[in-house]
Design a protein around this nucleic acid. Structure first.
Length: 493
RNA sequence: CGGGGUGUAGCGCAGUUGGUAGCGCACCUGGUUUGGGACCAGGUGGUCGCCCGUUCGAGUCGGGUCACCCCGACCA
């Protein structure tokens, strides 16, 4: 194995290092020298764009419209919602001045002390405050509701510790913000958007997720309920991959967003917010990748099919070019993105390895031998299986194969996850087993004390109270007190 | 902010008891190659993170400082 791939074998002992290196080698991203920020390279960004487009369409189907709000938020906005400040105050980047000037020796610049801002500005860690400050002007009547907006933007959170893709200090995301006339409608919207996220994760990313609601301590700052999708990475750790919050009237009250209802009575608007970020790319990488690199689901792969010619002499290459042209046409007509890599400065073996590293789902190889036989070699990235097929009807075969790969990697991930979900009623046993990863369904007495104790003693946290499986009452595995339902506990990123 | 580690060519690293910097990959030129990361020959590229000190002499020793990585606390 090539030297630059050696790190892949380190996966079991140091998982995070493995994917950090992988994404760099895979030309996806590299870290810049700015604290915990990342540069996303073109190939990586193409994946993000595809995710964006898909999600955006799904949002629009539910009536959401895109808008854009300012990057800088006046400091005073942050202090209007008490819990919200509590949650974000300690990780905000603050703008204090608006000008630089040349220094005394004229070989650099210094902050101009005369340009100090009256009120400091915060680089948005999330936009609830500035958006609700705007909503105040947009909402007067129940007829203005619901108000459903989303923005694609960057945010910044000055985290103590960053991790490529999973927790960079600046990250790209979408944040949806909605205002409603009734509590029920807002709660419904929060859950509806969670389902959109779950569908996107499973149908497009091929990442199976557990949907559920967060415990009080894990809730978003300022929310009454936080819904979550939790995915399992290949090391058994959980990754919170998307959240949707029911915010009650907290922001309506804080920003005085009142409307007149049908009875002509003033009422505070009900709120939701929901978001997914470039963390999803981390989820994609960590769910499907293998020792040869990325494995991308066809639905999100920037290049779905790569065609590599084998030739040497110009006349041979010309013959291959001619044979490939109609295949490319046909694939494109089917809406399949295809790249024909006939660059003659890289050998085929190099290209094979390179496109595997990049996770391209299907590879077609065509050489003189095939031209004689009327065949073509097909390789699928998920299983690395190769087969030789007749040239005739190859486009239709590839189309079928792509959808098969999409299904297969989802099934593979789901089988893995399901095999690592355990019901556990014994705390001693739990303590031992949770070290090795996996999702644990355990009874919990509902108290923050028990939750804190589990975290303290095992580093595992309550990921959510999961939806969609049959619950029976029991006793808390730690305290022995009565419990209504099982919760999902795991170590997480 | 605590604990550990690392800073030497674009990347990955070596550098012994202090003696004036090297290897692999990449890159450039020429040629032969092309069905799994090609080979041969030649070549470009470095204020050894930064500062101060010890010394005739520091990549190497001492002190300081900065940055990054890993493990915690914090978090999408």
């Amino acid at each position: 194995m090539a030297k630059e791939l050696d790190f892949l074998t380190k996966r079991s002992e140091d998982y995070s290092k493995w994917y950090n290196e992988l994404v760099v080698k895979a030309d996806l991203a590299e870290q810049s020298d700015v604290r915990g920020c990342m540069v996303i390279k073109p190939y990586g960004y193409a994946i993000w764009e595809k995710m964006q487009r898909t999600l955006d369409d799904m949002f629009k189907e539910t009536g959401v419209q895109n808008a854009y709000f300012p990057l800088l938020i006046p400091k005073s906005f942050l202090s209007k919602e008490a819990e919200h400040v509590e949650g974000f105050a300690k990780e905000c980047a603050v703008v204090t001045h608006y000008r630089l000037k040349t220094n005394e020796t004229h070989d650099g610049v210094v902050v101009d002390p005369a340009a100090k801002l009256e009120e400091e500005l915060i680089i948005r860690p999330t936009s609830e405050t500035i958006i609700w400050n705007t909503f105040k002007n947009w909402i007067q009547s129940y007829r203005d509701l619901p108000l459903l907006v989303n923005q694609w933007c960057n945010v910044m959170r000055w985290e103590m510790r960053t991790r490529l893709f999973l927790r960079t200090s600046e990250f790209l995301w979408q944040e949806g913000h909605t205002a409603h006339a009734t509590r029920e409608e807002a709660e419904e919207r929060a859950q509806q958007m969670l389902k959109v996220y779950a569908k996107f994760a499973e149908d497009y990313m091929a990442v199976p997720v557990v949907q559920g609601v967060k415990s009080e301590t894990e809730r978003f700052a300022g929310a009454l309920d936080t819904y979550t999708i939790e995915a399992m990475m290949q090391d058994g750790k959980a990754l919170q991959s998307g959240t949707s919050h029911f915010l009650g009237q907290n922001f309506g009250k804080a920003f005085e967003v009142q409307f007149l209802n049908k009875e002509n009575k003033p009422e505070y608007a009900w709120a939701t917010s929901w978001g997914v970020s470039t963390r999803l790319m981390g989820a994609l990488i960590m769910t499907h990748s293998d020792d040869n690199g990325l494995v991308l689901p066809p639905a999100l792969a920037p290049i779905q099919v790569v065609i590599i010619p084998i030739g040497g002499k110009p006349e041979q290459m010309a013959a291959v070019d001619a044979a490939v042209a109609p295949i490319i046409d046909e694939l494109k007509k089917m809406g399949i993105s295809v790249k024909y890599d006939n660059a003659d400065n890289k050998r085929p073996g190099f290209k094979f390895a390179d496109y595997e590293l990049k996770g391209v789902p299907v590879r077609l190889v065509l050489g003189a031998r095939d031209l004689e036989n009327g065949t073509i070699e097909v390789m699928r990235r998920d299983t690395l299986e190769k087969e030789t097929r007749p040239l005739d009807g190859i486009a239709a075969y590839v189309q079928e194969l792509l959808s098969d790969i999409q299904k297969n990697i989802f099934t593979k991930a789901k089988t893995f996850r399901d095999a690592h979900i355990y019901e556990c009623d014994d705390y001693e046993e739990f303590k031992e087993r949770v070290k090795d990863g996996g999702f644990f369904l355990c009874h919990w007495d509902g108290t923050a004390e028990t939750e804190a104790r589990i975290k303290e003693e095992t580093q595992a946290t309550i990921r959510c109270v999961p939806f969609g499986f049959e619950q029976t009452p029991g006793v808390d595995m730690v305290t022995g007190k009565p419990s209504k339902a099982r919760v999902l506990i795991a170590r997480s990123y």
